[in-house]
Design a protein around this nucleic acid. Structure first.
Lengths: 339, 339
DNA sequence: ATTGTAAGAGTAACCGGTTTCGTTCAATAA
DNA sequence: TTATTGAACGAAACCGGTTACTCTTACAAT
């Protein structure tokens, strides 16, 4: 049966305090013999301290919350893995929450995490302004934002990719290849990263003195289906373009599929660059050229930040911007990686 | 600041018991006016009950453990999603644990879940016999096994795909198409599902009076790289085969890549069928014909089983076998789905 | 022999809730 | 008017741990 510290104490004929000391390896105050005896009893009975009880006693749960839109989105498994790995190595376990980009679900999950008194939260937020964050602040729960910045006064820890520069570099590359008619297929306008990426595109064109052609710019959402739809529309509208900057890899894949469906050769007739660098881009045939975010590194960095904050090692506000890398593969003609 | 039930009680000039009654909507014993007043104070102070404390008070954590090999493996996100969705709808949150197929990690995670006194565990196990399960049993923590059966006396709840029949049907289909030289590219022999799938292959050949050609059978692991390696070997050995049954979809994709690399046309010169039905099979070009496991359904079913057991609605042993479906796509010639 | 000190261990309060049981008091029945 | 009843609520024990504080006792120092 389930046994408690009292059971162990009773059997060992000592007090709960002594057993507790042994459990926590506080050697002071316990003779080696007593400690040994208690340890043997613990071993024999297979006793495991109730970590919930410990958590409430010393108000440290050793648990983290991880709130993301959807684990089914190929961008996130690696992020989750990285965070889980690092957290685990520090003795934390992590709660996974999928919000489906639904602000209500996000709110509900955050509250649930507050209720559990998690030590910290890593959040890829859907909403651009969550009032629950106020609550987090009130309950003194540290959190770090990943991928998507929020416009909120409480934010002080974050890890973001340099979306602007990533797209800027990619578009600059395309321009350098001689393209002037470059389409932009963006994701949902609801998230700020979409805007950042678009601005990278816009400014790269501007800096090359290429006027922005609005008919070459589409927005949808970050899915293959949307990529197909946007590209279909582009083709239908007979837009003249020779290259495409996609808002993410899924859109890029969708675009490739649509182009192929219309017998437009990639990269011969149209070069395409994606964004994110999910594994799929390597697997897909043709392998997608893309702006790679170091997802695992972002994950580790954010977990490190959070746990640093929890441990009081980080007190100031801190934003980490990671630089993405342009990786050229089979959807661009010159298949070598940029510096 | 963080406030507790005592704070609320003090401010409302009632006892903790009364506040507790209000929190739990136990209308008996509290006048509507008092309840209302307390609710207002709770609202105003943004008080949230500490669910850890509640958990230990009524020894129900409302938490589930989910132990899988690797969320990065495209098979698992959907499983995780399904389980999380169902659990969440029942008021449970879930801990995610990645074991990397490492028995030690699995052990460690299971212990950690025991320590947290989760109400139940869903386990895709690495080891074929885990002694920690004994511990689970001892602590009376219900668990359900998914995907991989264990040879252990404590197992009584499980959800598995009919691997044998899935492969049998697929191979039978290939034979029906006239193939006699069908290769089998299996995953790691460490998991029982590999054997089950192989046996489906073996028996389908046997029942068609086709002798088993050992040179057409390879084992590796469940990855694209392994699929490529096995296929390369097959080609190198100049094995004469006209169709391939892959141990899973990643192997199938690897095989397709290798074949394509050798300018062997799929499906014209070689038909291929995968297993699992991960999303990638639809995205990949050519779309992979595969034996689809209803992953989301498996997830829901296993969560349902677990929560049923937790609630005492399920008392007997129960194994659910889900039947996979053969879905024909672009790696087989006759692109229509079998019944 | 007396005092001082520190190691070993126990007592009890505490963490933040739930729940049983008992008390108070007003409304109703006799 | 008195007994009965039940609604409203409080006191206190409990869940399973941690920890500040106190008490013994043995041993060294004076």
């Amino acid at each position: 049966m389930r046994c408690t510290i009292s059971d162990i104490a009773r059997i060992a004929k000592v007090s709960k305090a002594t057993v507790s000391r042994v459990i926590n390896n506080k050697s002071e105050g316990v003779s080696p013999e007593t400690a040994q005896r208690i340890r043997e009893i613990i071993e024999e009975l297979g006793y495991r301290p109730n970590s919930l009880a410990r958590s409430i006693a010393n108000s440290r749960a050793k648990m983290l919350g991880l709130v993301i839109p959807d684990i089914t989105n190929p961008f996130f498994p690696n992020l989750v893995r990285g965070i889980e790995d690092y957290a685990n190595s520090c003795g934390y376990t992590v709660f996974l929450c999928n919000t489906d980009n639904n602000p209500e679900k996000e709110e509900q999950y955050l509250l649930s995490l507050i209720d559990k008194r998690v030590d910290g939260i890593i959040l890829v937020s859907t909403t651009s302004q969550s009032c629950t964050l106020e609550q987090l602040n009130k309950y003194n729960i540290p959190f770090v934002l990943v991928d998507r910045p929020l416009t909120n006064e409480y934010i002080d820890l974050g890890v973001y990719a340099n979306n602007y520069k990533g797209v800027y570099t990619a578009v600059e590359y395309l321009i350098g290849c001689g393209h002037r008619d470059i389409a932009f297929l963006g994701g949902t306008r609801k998230v700020i990263t979409t805007t950042e990426r678009f601005e990278g595109y816009r400014d790269a064109l501007r800096d090359a003195n290429i006027p922005l052609d609005k008919s070459l710019v589409k927005f949808g959402d970050y899915s293959i289906a949307s990529g197909i739809a946007m590209m279909e529309k582009l083709i239908e509208e007979k837009a003249g373009f020779t290259a495409v900057m996609a808002g993410n890899d899924l859109i890029a894949i969708g675009a490739v599929k649509a182009l192929r469906h219309h017998r437009i050769k990639v990269p011969d007739q149209c070069e395409i660059i994606g964004f994110d660098g999910i594994e799929l881009t390597e697997i897909f045939d043709p392998a997608i050229s893309t702006v790679v975010q170091p997802i695992y590194e972002i994950a580790i960095e954010s977990a490190k930040l959070l746990i640093g904050k929890i441990n009081g090692e980080i007190t100031s506000s801190r934003k980490i911007i990671v630089e993405p890398t342009l990786v050229l593969r089979a959807t661009t003609r010159n298949n070598k990686t940029q510096e």
